[in-house]
Structures are given as structure tokens and as C-alpha cells.
Simulated scan of single mutants.
Amino acid sequence: MERRAFLGLLVAHSFLISAGDAQSERLRRIAIVMNYLVDDPIGQARFASIIQSLQALGWTEGRNLTVQASWPGADLGIIQKEINELTKGPWDVVVPTSTPITRVLLKSNIKAPIVFTNVSDPVGDGFVQSLPRPGRNVTGFINYEGPLAGKWLQLLKEIDPRVNNASLLFNPDVAPRHGDYYWNAFESAAKSLGIIPTAAPVRTVDDIDEAIRKISDTPGSGLVVASDSFVGVHRAKIVASAAQHRVTTSYPFIIEGALISYGPPLTQFYSDIAPYIDKILKGAKASDLPVQVPIKVDLVINMRTAKELGLQVPATLLSRADEVIE
């Protein structure tokens, strides 16, 4: 081969390599809409877990990735406003982190692949066609399954056998299926346990204290807190009100001061979405990635709170706990 021809091939080969490197290093744009307020330390920690997990997969902000975060919490008006802003720009992946955020996003004209997390009932809410084959360029991670509401009530009765009336607290505006997703299992468990079930819908912060105060007025009453984005944002208020009114309460996730909680480790749902984002950025279709369900559930008991409520926690319950806070 002539030297001139060889050098021409070498230059062409080098150009192709450079073009490939440029392709792999081009900035990909991700939008993450958080179901927390920006000053919430838990929300910040969970957002950081997404970024750290992406970094571990080779995606670094400023080099090959740019991330835009918004923090509307559970306010439907702010959620709609944030989604409207997102429609103005192209995205490689959009990550909604709650049921109401996902609902508003899917009603918008955003065409980017969607990877949701912290969503309970994506099939029932019409987000996906099925868990194995979600379709619609959407996939993600389920946080809670409806039958857990029955388990929350069983644990409440076990830790406080005096409970014969129980209320389920949720925000019908943002809860999956407006609360029915949890209510059906809650009501069924109540009947089997000889407990009178009552719904305790709340829509504002003031509603929380009023609802729990009413529950405390009835002897033998307990409270089960369902999982929705409103509850997540105002979790500290719920714990404080339950303590103030001395209401035995079970929770779906670990909260400081909570008597008993039973649910999957939520931080995992944020870090676990990184591999799905990675696959999509490398060419996979969201519709081909199955929706993932929780595989681990933790039982946590706070002995200090139990003592404050005058409860003697059964040894059988303590032996099953994944964590006991002394």
C-alpha cells in the first residue's frame, strides 16, 4: 500500500474514533422532579443517591450529563407548573418521583422516556399497561403494594391489643386511586381482627392535627398512616400530632419518633433507578424494561415511643424486627 493511501486511512480511522468519543461524551439531559421540598434533608439525600449511582455507572455532571432538579413536593399546583416548564426543553430521560407527579407528566406533551419511582399502583392508575411490558415509553419502580395496608393494621393491633377502632390517614387528592388502593386491604384486615375501620382523609396541614385529635377522642382507637406524597412531605407533623394526642400509630416508612414502621427501604428506590436511566441513555427503550416491585421490607420498632405510650411490646414482635430503636 502506498504511503499516501496508508496515511489517508489512518487519518480517517482517527476521525472515526474522535467522532465516537464525542458521541459518547455528549451531554445527556435528565430532569428529576422530586416529591420533597428543596429544604427537606431526606429529599436531598435521596436526590444525591440518584446522582451518586449515576456517577458509579460513568455519568458525570458537566462531562456527559446535565441534571435539572425541581422540588414541588405534593402541591398539585406547583407540580403542574414545574411540568409545564419541562415541556419547553428536550430531555433524554425524565424522572418523576411520586404518583401525582407521574400523573401530571404523562398528561403533558413530553416525549422523553420516563422512569418513575415512589409510585404505588402504576397499572391501576393507567401509567403502564402491565408490569412486565409497561409500554408508552414509561417504566419505573413501585414502592408499596396495596396489601401492605392490612399488614400495617395487623402490626398496630399486635403492638397495642387495646385497639378496637382504627383509622387510615391519607390525602385523597394524591393517594393512589384516591386512597382505595390501601383502603380495601385495610378494611379487610379490620374485619378479620374485629376492628372498626374508619377513613381519615386529610388535605391540609391543619387537617392532620384535627383528624388525629378526633381519633384520640374515642377510647381504643389507633391510626394507620398510608403512603402518599402529602404524607411524606408532612411526616414530622403527623408523628408530632400522634405523640401529642397519644394515639398508637403505625407508619409505612421509618420516621424519627415513629412507634412502628413496616415497609421497603425508600432510599433504595431512588438509587435503583440509575441502572434503568443508564440503559435508556445507551439505547434501551423504557417500554421494554419491566416495572420493578419491592423485594425487601423492614420492620422497625421504637422502644422509646412505646414507653411514652405505656406499651409493652411483645417479645414475639421484637424478635421479628429488623431494627429496634432503644
Rank of each mutant, 00 (worst) to 15 (best):
L259P: 13
W152N: 07
S271P: 01
H178T: 04
I215F: 06
H234M: 10
D278S: 14
V205H: 06
K237G: 09
V225M: 01
Y251C: 13
I215R: 05
W183T: 01
E210P: 00
S192F: 10
E158W: 10
Q154T: 14
K279V: 06
V239M: 13
E158P: 00
A199S: 14
A242V: 13
I212C: 06
L168W: 09
V225A: 07
T198C: 04
I215N: 03
V233G: 03
G179A: 02
I254D: 15
R162L: 12
V224M: 03
S261G: 13
P176Y: 04
A166D: 04
A189I: 02
G232W: 05
E187S: 12
L193G: 05
A189S: 14
G150C: 10
T267F: 08
E256W: 00
V231F: 04
L148R: 10
R177P: 03
S167C: 12
V231D: 09
P265H: 13
T267H: 11
R177Y: 00
L153S: 10
V174N: 04
W152I: 02
G222R: 01
L266N: 05
V224L: 01
P172D: 02
S188K: 14
D206F: 08
I195L: 05
Y262P: 00
L259N: 13
A242E: 10
S167N: 09
D278F: 09
Y182K: 02
D228L: 03
I255N: 13
I212T: 05
P201G: 05
E210D: 15
I195T: 00
I208N: 02
D180T: 02
V163T: 13
Y270K: 01
L156G: 05
G179T: 00
I196D: 08
I273T: 04
L193N: 01
T267K: 07
A211I: 07
I159E: 04
P176S: 15
L223T: 05
I238C: 11
L168R: 01
T218A: 11
K279Q: 15
R235H: 09
P172M: 03
N164R: 14
V225H: 06
Y182I: 00
I280M: 04
I255Y: 07
S250Y: 08
A200R: 01
W152A: 06
K151R: 14
I260N: 07
R162W: 12
R162P: 03
K157A: 14
F170G: 07
N165T: 12
A274M: 09
V224N: 03
L169N: 06
H245C: 08
H245Y: 15
A190Y: 11
T249V: 10
S221E: 08
T267D: 15
G222K: 00
P176F: 03
S229L: 06
L168A: 08
P264W: 07
L153T: 03
K237S: 14
K151M: 11
S192L: 14
V231M: 13
A242F: 13
H245A: 09
V239L: 12
A274R: 02
G150N: 10
V202C: 10
G222V: 02
G263K: 00
D228A: 04
A149I: 00
A236Q: 15
I280G: 03
D272C: 06
E210G: 03
R235N: 09
G150W: 01
V239F: 12
W183S: 06
H245R: 12
V233T: 08
E256L: 06
A240Q: 14
D209E: 15
I273M: 01
P219C: 00
N184V: 03
R235M: 08
